[in-house]
């Protein structure tokens, strides 16, 4: 074991890992974090805490992680390259480790033009792959990017995101290879609706042996309605929502679409679990955290192993 991470421990035991996500509130109320946390307690093995997702200002990811940590969670701290230079990034990594955070998810971050401060300056001093390498260098070599040695190395389980559906498709597996080479321990994918295309990508991943070097957690997001499915297909870049799914949702009466969406999500988890190299699932129920327990249970993944 490289770290004290709960998900690392479970992955080493060969367990199928379940993670979910918690978006910090748009305010300073710690209770709001705890409230969301309570919905996920004992439901999942790790909780991602988003870092100003979609570039909308929210409570600090690290602060929210600490609140969840106090509740007994093993948070997965998301860190984006958009808002910090390499000085702040290294410093925050050390701080997070000191506060007992065991997992980091390295992301480039959504462009600020999508958020509530489109006039902001972005940083992007380093990118997500360079961030992975930075964490690895701090952890395994005990060195700062500047070359100096550090006193007390941050023991973080290093994660990254990957979107198997983004363009250009032909380099997606290659790009995962770059992340693995940079030092990534686990991957959470963008939400999957097209299982067939995902399987094809996993095939390429296996061909490169990448599934043995890093744990791949398949991302899913339950659809609330046919409208949401259409919106995601049309407006979220790199999102592959097959028409058959939209049709299936549209075929049920509106008031039942949410339940159908959850059913689809559960079926999908069961399919994904069977794909060789998929070591867990990452359930992103955006502002729908109360449904995660139901999904996990219905997918036969409850109770979570100790």
């Amino acid at each position: 074991m490289k770290t004290k991470s709960n998900i690392e421990r479970l992955l080493e035991k060969g367990e199928f890992v379940v993670t979910s996500e918690c978006g910090p509130p748009r305010g300073s109320d710690a209770e709001a974090v705890r409230k969301k946390g309570n919905l996920l307690k004992e439901v999942v093995d790790g909780v991602n805490v988003t870092d100003n997702q979609t570039s909308v200002v929210r409570m600090s990811s690290l602060a929210s992680c600490v609140i969840l940590k106090e509740m007994g969670f093993d948070p997965i701290w998301q860190l984006v390259c958009r808002d910090r230079n390499r000085i702040a990034i290294q410093s925050d990594i050390l701080g997070a480790a000191a506060l007992g955070i065991n997992n980091i998810l390295c992301l480039s971050g959504d462009h600020q033009s999508f958020g509530d401060n489109p006039k902001a300056k972005n940083v992007y001093d380093i990118d997500s792959i360079q961030l992975i390498h930075t964490v690895k260098t701090l952890r395994d070599e005990g060195k700062f990017l500047g070359g100096d040695e550090l006193k007390g190395t941050p023991s973080l389980f290093i994660g990254a995101a990957e979107n198997p559906f983004a363009d250009p498709y032909e380099i997606r597996a290659m790009r995962l290879g770059k992340k693995v080479k940079a030092g990534c321990d686990f991957i959470q994918t963008q939400c999957i609706y097209n299982v067939e295309k995902f399987s094809k990508w996993m095939g390429e991943v296996r061909e490169r042996g990448l599934h043995k070097q890093c744990a791949i957690l398949a991302g899913v997001t339950p659809l609330k309605s046919a409208g949401m499915a259409k919106y995601m297909k049309k407006n979220v870049p790199g999102m592959d929502v097959p028409d058959s799914l939209i049709e299936r949702l549209a075929a049920v009466p509106k008031e039942n679409q949410a339940q159908e969406g959850i059913k689809i999500c559960v079926e999908m988890i069961r399919q994904l679990k069977e794909i060789e190299g998929v070591r867990g699932v990452h359930i992103m129920a955006i502002e729908w955290e109360e449904k995660v327990a139901e999904i996990v249970k219905a997918a036969g993944l409850s109770p979570r192993p100790a």
Partner: peptide, 20 residues
């Protein structure tokens, strides 16, 4: 690149276009 990524593309690359 809108994010000046050295090891891109990010997940927002769609049909050859930038998400921004």
């Amino acid at each position: 690149c809108a994010k000046s990524l050295f090891n891109g593309p990010c997940g927002g690359s769609s049909n050859g276009k930038c998400e921004v």
